[in-house]
Design a protein around this nucleic acid. Sequence first.
DNA 1: CGACCCGTTCGCCATCGAGAAACATATAGT
DNA 2: ACTATATGTTTCTCGATGGCGAACGGGTCG
Lengths: 250, 250
Amino acid sequence: MDDDRVRATETSIRMLEGLIDLDGEAGITELATHLSVAKSTVYKHLNTLESSGLAVKHGDRYRIGLRALEFGGYAQRYDGVYDTARPQLRKMADETGELANLMFEEDDWGVYVHTSRGENAVEIDTQTGRRAYLHATGLGKAILATLPEERVEEIIDARGLPAVTEHTITEPRALFEELDEIDATGIAYDREECVEGMACIARPLSTPSERPAAISITGPVSRVSTGETEESIRTVLEQAGNVIELNLTG
Amino acid sequence: MDDDRVRATETSIRMLEGLIDLDGEAGITELATHLSVAKSTVYKHLNTLESSGLAVKHGDRYRIGLRALEFGGYAQRYDGVYDTARPQLRKMADETGELANLMFEEDDWGVYVHTSRGENAVEIDTQTGRRAYLHATGLGKAILATLPEERVEEIIDARGLPAVTEHTITEPRALFEELDEIDATGIAYDREECVEGMACIARPLSTPSERPAAISITGPVSRVSTGETEESIRTVLEQAGNVIELNLTG
DNA sequence: CGACCCGTTCGCCATCGAGAAACATATAGT
DNA sequence: ACTATATGTTTCTCGATGGCGAACGGGTCG
């Protein structure tokens, strides 16, 4: 039965998604045609969203409002992992000069929750809140490695194993093998599986929170994947991870 | 007429707010009694919110989902100010050792959009997305100083001038006087007007974006408000602000 | 084992969300 | 200057649906 959902809420959310599709900003007619609904419907929904701060009106154009950020903040911080990890990410970024990331698993997705940029950090899009396939990033694989096999199956069923680049693992068999190895070594590697030319070294976090998490360092293959730096990045990850885990259990 | 709003959407949003009220986490019955609506209603709304990622179910408890963070990210970044300011905030934090903040005005509120912590940064709550009265913070006053008088009147009408601490400006007269001074000097001070014991030095940002913004350094009165450091913080703010403005107009 | 408490399901009804079309207002074209 | 066209706003109508209350079923605690 589809009767345990509220359609009006769903369309309101579709409005927000529509705004994103239309480069984050749209007028009423524009959004109405994009979503194939009546103008008056869009009008009422945007009005409602605006009065709660989830949308913002500027002239005749609408955008997503900062209120969403407030809600997001609660999602981000409720278990303390974010707050604890944040200074460590910064330290990681400083020590390596690269890009440090924190990811949570939620709803079968990997969600980038925070990033910290070192001096030479690459400029790739790790916008806070962005979702990524768990099997296609070092962070995601690190997370998957901590989950029971059935859970991983579930996630595969839900999201599939699409190829994000030509190096992405797309075979369940291969994925499970790698997860075993990650579980054994405690470190996950990603060599251009997520972004062409980029590599990523990740480490799962073992926290009291029920929300799976991982941290990583990302950079160009040329820098991150060479034996020497790889070694030092691993220790940076290890230390930062230990500190985070200690702070959370202590 | 109240007919140009969507009630179902409003109640969905009330559910999210309710979750916050209940310490970020609640069961269905709990939330139903808190909001004084039928259990089945809460059930349907949370179900809907969950399937879009705005809520997350863990066992029988619901929380706000990280999807909100994704939406918030778009609100944060659409005009480029956030991305441009971020590295400068970090620099400000490093150079002063204190807490650096970025605030936007939206919907007559001041919204904390990013913070960067220096070595000695105080641990106060500047959670991303948090809203604050514009008249009661250095950041807010810096923003108000850039707005036309009518706009400031509007904001006062909408949000009032409540006393946040005993030092908060609560008289329109006094506020406008200070805004004039801020406008003349380009710097806004806040001495315990927002948080007891804390001072804040802020500077408005003049950007191509129609969204008013300001940056600041916050710290204990004892450190921030003494002549010498105050001086150096001012120059740090000035420089960072210039760089941001230059990057955005260039 | 029974009394509760919770999430879930069911069925009902007045409400209200959604659409279509008319209206108002601004901008562009000739 | 005056259409023509686009947009946001309003109105109206109708069927769907949101919200309720009550019943169900599965835990848990005494």
